[in-house]
Design a protein around this nucleic acid. Structure first.
Lengths: 231, 231
DNA sequence: CGCCTAATTGAGAAGTATCAACAGAAGTGG
DNA sequence: CCACTTCTGTTGATACTTCTCAATTAGGCG
């Protein structure tokens, strides 16, 4: 819930070093192909909480995550924010349809990405392959956000269940999730308070649905129960 | 909120006559141009609650609304649903990126649309204009859904304020909104219960922010107050 | 008018946020 | 290695919001 009151403890000034350096990268022509896994570009590392790019900035580069996790969010005044997406290893992102970034992107942990300049031909009829590529990426994004909008209309328990299933699917390992993000990140992603996230984890654990060896490690003991919660 | 309990009173079997007839329409090549307002195709009318198309159906046609309003939604078991969008006069919709409909579309009131067959060339490099058009439509949809996801993470009061502002903007008339949809529709769009929608209207009216000549007519007496609520 | 549906309103229950205190982990410097 | 600090996460108490159920009112239409 995005409430009116401000929690001053939450505000963290971002590092803001990544963009400047990234701007010097990728002057050569790169091929950006998500499905095939072909992705040219220079490698670049980011420290936790370091910005890859910020809202309003021009959307010149595309990123593919080699290691780590990134949060994409919008700031909503004094420490409040809505995380729009988590980008994990293998994800390609930054192909915003417009000229400007709609969201800011920040490293969650130690992140290593490939950075590629976007094809400048987008918008002309010349490179229809690039256009189609952009189109497909946008369509996938659309579906993802529609799914997320559905999630946000559900109860806290259901949101958490969806979140855990999503993460377990995206990390590949069936029933073990190693969360790179904090409880606060999860809360801002699901539109809940940090306490509700924590309590819901505790409730899941108490019911034997998950176990929590550490706060960042979640073992899905009863994935079916989580699945059933989603309806 | 999408709750577990079922309200049997809500279930309404849809008319289900539109799709069959629409299938015979639009065999000629049509030009689909949203921005310019050029839109070929045959005119077709729908009665309230009549389906334009349903979830899972193949996405062969594009629609432009000449009159009336359409709700696009996903069913979620026994009468529950999430309305994903309201389509109003002038809107072009149905350009789903995929082959199949992700959502169902239903007339809210007496609706008149133009129906055009989608260009079959989408997917080949031949008609790059069509691809780009689809791309732009998808990008606009993406932005709209992102906005909606933001809304769904807010309080009931804020959601309602956003809704009223959105409607007033889309209808053109600055401070007068004539709602084509029921309270239930609004509730399913905002992820709230019908009672909360009703009560929030009443509270806005009590505070002089709006007045309600009838339940379907909303006069925005203090649009700035609504704007401020959004943050 | 009588029926039917939509909308409103009230009362109580449930869910979630907020505030505050505490516990645990990680980092820092001695 | 240990004290100290800091940050993150957990837990409890309480208030507030929203949902649910039920009753009532208002509107539309035969």
């Amino acid at each position: 819930m995005l409430t009116q009151t401000v929690d001053a403890r939450r505000y963290v000034a971002p590092y803001r070093s990544g963009v400047g350096t990234a701007s010097g990268v990728g002057t050569a022509l790169q091929s950006v192909k998500k499905s095939a896994g072909v992705f040219g570009g220079k490698e670049k590392a980011f420290k936790p909480n370091e910005e890859l790019f910020s809202e309003g900035e021009s959307a010149d580069y595309v990123y593919k995550i080699l290691r780590g996790a990134v949060r994409s969010y919008k700031s909503l005044g004094e420490g409040r924010r809505k995380i729009e997406a988590f980008r994990l290893r293998g994800d390609v992102f930054g192909l915003d349809p417009g000229k400007e970034r709609e969201f800011c992107a920040e490293a969650i942990d130690e992140v290593c990405v490939l950075v590629a300049r976007r094809r400048t031909t987008v918008g002309t009829a010349a490179d229809s392959e690039a256009i189609q590529e952009l189109c497909e990426a946008t369509a996938r994004e659309l579906q993802r956000v529609q799914q997320h909008a559905l999630l946000l209309a559900m109860s806290a328990r259901q949101r958490m269940a969806c979140f855990l299933i999503e993460m377990s699917q995206r990390f590949g390992e069936p029933n073990l999730v190693e969360l790179p993000m904090s409880r606060q990140d999860i809360a801002d992603y699901l539109g809940l308070s940090i306490e509700t996230v924590s309590r819901t984890f505790a409730k899941f654990a108490a019911n034997g649905i998950v176990s929590l060896p550490t706060s960042r490690h979640v073992v899905l003991r009863d994935p079916d129960a989580l699945q059933q919660m989603r309806e």
